[in-house]
């Protein structure tokens, strides 16, 4: 039996609503239904401060607040600093991954990705399910 709470609140962040929809649907297929959405870093930060989440899955390239900036804000916030943070992005250069890791990212998924990769990475972050 899985030790993972499949009802854990997850916040997904992307400025492409289609991508939000794709991630939401894939999460639903994996068994996660308690999913909220934000379309940029600042909106996400507000939601994170208003409600307790167990996981953030965020795009990088967004305005006005990018995913990297959101990550830095999360890590700098005493209440949120330990929150698992997965970056899903098309930014696939070495310096991007290094910058994200240095900022405290928990895992990094490069777009385009598939459901199997999402499951593998989420298992590495929250445990096998």
């Amino acid at each position: 039996m899985s030790a993972v709470d499949m009802n854990m609140p997850i916040l997904i962040v992307d400025d492409y609503k289609t991508m939000l929809r794709i991630i939401r649907n894939l999460l639903k297929q994996l068994g996660f239904d308690n999913v909220d959405e934000a379309t940029d870093g600042s909106m996400a930060l507000q939601k994170l401060r208003d409600k307790s989440y167990s996981l953030v899955i965020s795009d990088w390239n967004m305005e006005p607040m990018s995913g990297l900036q959101l990550l830095k804000e999360v890590r700098a916030d005493g209440q949120l600093s330990n929150l698992p943070f997965v970056m899903i992005t098309a930014e696939s250069k070495t310096e991007n991954v290094v910058a994200a890791k240095q900022a405290g990212v928990t895992n990094y998924i490069v777009k385009p990705f598939n459901a199997a990769t999402l499951k593998t990475k989420l298992s590495a972050v929250i445990g096998h399910f």
Binding site: S92, K93, T94, E95, N96, Y108, V110, F113
Partner: peptide, 22 residues
């Protein structure tokens, strides 16, 4: 500077490379 969007195939690194880097 880091927000460059999708890379050309020859400039990008793979998911495996990213995992190894992490």
């Amino acid at each position: 500077d880091l927000m460059n969007g999708p890379q050309a195939a020859e400039a990008a690194i793979s998911q495996d490379d990213i995992d190894a880097l992490l």
